[in-house]
Design a protein around this nucleic acid. Structure first.
Lengths: 223, 223, 223, 223
DNA sequence: TATGAATGAGGGTTCATTCAT
DNA sequence: CATGAATGAACCCTCATTCAT
């Protein structure tokens, strides 16, 4: 569905740049590498993008377009339970860590720390990516209804989930081990358990279909 | 105390490189910039370091040396309460965000995402930095004794605190706002409250000097 | 009246290129700039002109076409006296210097020094432009009849007037001041006065309607 | 004498750039050509000059340094008569036209029309070159004493000589013929004759050692 | 005719590094 | 140890031009 209206060459440039920025970082990726791997020559790239910075902007807009279809919707298709979706999403990132041998994490997180300061528009779009991610998760949390205490701000909690993902991935990449990621997710799970217990305690209705700690997406190895 | 045994030129190179890698990132910092700002010339740099990569290694070792004296010890000097120290430390990073207008966060976190994949030794040292950070916090948590449930792995929890810091900073830099950082810290605080409540519930001893949620370092604005 | 038979697109290309070559020089003007400012695309330009060099040729032919209508004829319409026309023409260039803040001078002169060596056809047309300019002024001088000494070659003198204009403009642009131009014109005026005096001395007829030095177009400031 | 204190590499870059800018113009000369012909590689050039623009500035400063030793002093060594020096100097430029087959003229004049508008510092130095040239000639004219009328501003007249040279060269290059240059010099000579006649007429002393028109450096062919 | 995507050589410049002094 | 000139590959980008539609 993505890039439907885009010129194929432009789409190829965008996808190649996205991949390389993800794999190597923005500064470490030379334009010539993008050109070679996209099978395009320099003039064409600069026909579509004024410069490397604008290509970065294009990549970040690309991520905004694809986030829901390739990240949230697959999770929603597989898991029904709102809170289950949260941990399923985290599991996806966990799988990515394994699949790419800890060398890749979250493309937005990488760019956030590398380029945000110097590129105003890029920073804005990185923030937009984060914001959309949080909003999608917040919608799941909202769907959890009274299974979470009313006092808990759903958007703050969603932001905390993003925090857990990004912070967990950062440590696991450095450690080349799932342990830190799993540890963080386990603690988040414990927090959710406490929240659900609190919500259940302050209610008259039956605390049905709770997510038990035991079906955690992240088995807390090394505990 | 750091760099006591270092040649002053080497120390100047190291400190300049550390600052510039922090401010601009590793790839975005040219060797010539380091030379200019350190007031040395290339021959001197390459006398002390075989190359830019090894300079990065030196910087990361430098961070290992200074972490406790400039990060943990000041916190310990100001706050006595073990759990209070955790949130005081987070407050330090919060102050850094404000002081540098959201353009600087955690130097190790930046490098972790930018260079970890390609530099084996750098990755190892980044991990060592994280590990030392976690161990220091774990020691504080251990000092909290039975104010936290026995079932909670102290090191896992310390790692989760690092996760909260790094993930919160990443979002706040992108948002150029304290809100995401504060939101994450507020959720962490809520988790700690739950843990302390649980620990207090399963005990006969008096739950003295608990850190109440109200003295949070991070006012949860925008909730 | 110019470009009557030209296709409007071709005319627009020509006028835009002429303006940009004048403002920026030939090499400093990119084809893409011409395209953008003329509102055409590359295919159209290369439909009308085989390349940038031929566009230059077209521009020089364009100048040949417009020189008399926009340069000589307006002068002739305003001034009747043949010698007066010479200095009126120089005054026009003086006004151009002021109007464009010394950043523009004579379009042909610019191209003469920049491209004449490498473009045979361009050099020929630049020479043709100079030649036409000189011929027009020679006609004026011829109309002055015996007010100038018979021994003076009218075409040589006309060439010297072109020399004065080009050399004066070159210096005034460099100085960002009218002084050098005015100085050169003042000296030329003095030369004309001497010539007219000589002619008057060797004649029996009345020295009517002489151009007195006092109505000089170029007030000799800074003398 | 020039470049005595300059590093040999820097001097070679400067001389090569000066020659190429002269032969091809500033924009038409690629940095890579300068590097190749100077036998230097890019890093070295940028070690001495921040960029191509500053190299241009260096070249113009170079011209300021060498103007008197290679232009004025040889003329002074050969010709004693002050006014004779003026026309000897013009003869030198005439010889240059012939020697380089009308493809080279005055390096400063070329740059004046090509780059003056966009490079503030270059424009200033071009003006300085012109100014120094004029001052040197003015000194000769001053030495002519009462052989020229007192009413004639010596510096204005010197500027007019520069004008004659630049305007004459421009036309001769376009024409690939000495005729325009010679024509302009012939007219200038006629003007000088008139001035000297005027000066002689208003004096009691004998008009000794006048430069007669017949010993003109520029035989007025094609008259 | 018009359109604008594609071409690829070359533009000026910076890079990390080496090495003679 | 220090100096700073030298190296040349690589950087991002623009150039004039071609060509399929």
């Amino acid at each position: 569905m993505e890039n439907t209206e885009l010129h194929p060459t432009k789409a190829r440039i965008l996808e190649t740049a996205a991949r390389l920025f993800f794999e190597q970082g923005f500064h470490a990726t030379g334009v010539s590498t993008i050109l070679r791997e996209a099978g395009v020559n320099s003039g064409s790239l600069y026909h579509y993008f004024p410069g490397k910075d604008e290509l970065l902007v294009g990549v970040l807009e690309h991520y905004i377009r694809i986030m829901r279809p390739i990240l949230m919707e697959p999770v929603e298709a597989v898991v029904e339970d709102p809170i289950g979706r949260v941990f399923k999403l985290l599991e996806r990132y966990r799988e990515g860590l394994v699949a790419f041998d800890f060398r890749l994490g979250c493309p937005i997180g990488n760019l956030a720390l590398e380029v945000a300061d110097d590129h105003a528009e890029a920073r804005r779009l990185i923030n937009q990516n984060f914001s959309n991610w949080i909003d999608a998760v917040r919608d799941w949390l909202a769907a959890a209804g009274d299974r979470l205490p009313a006092r808990v701000d759903r958007r703050q909690l969603a932001s905390f989930i993003l925090t857990t993902m990004e912070g967990g991935i950062m440590q696991s990449r450095a450690a080349r081990s799932l342990d830190p990621f799993d540890a963080s997710v386990a603690q988040l799970r414990a927090y959710f358990d406490a929240l659900q217990a609190e919500a259940a305690g302050s209610q008259t209705t039956s605390p049905s279909h709770s997510c038990s700690p035991s079906d955690s997406a992240a088995p807390t190895r090394g505990r």
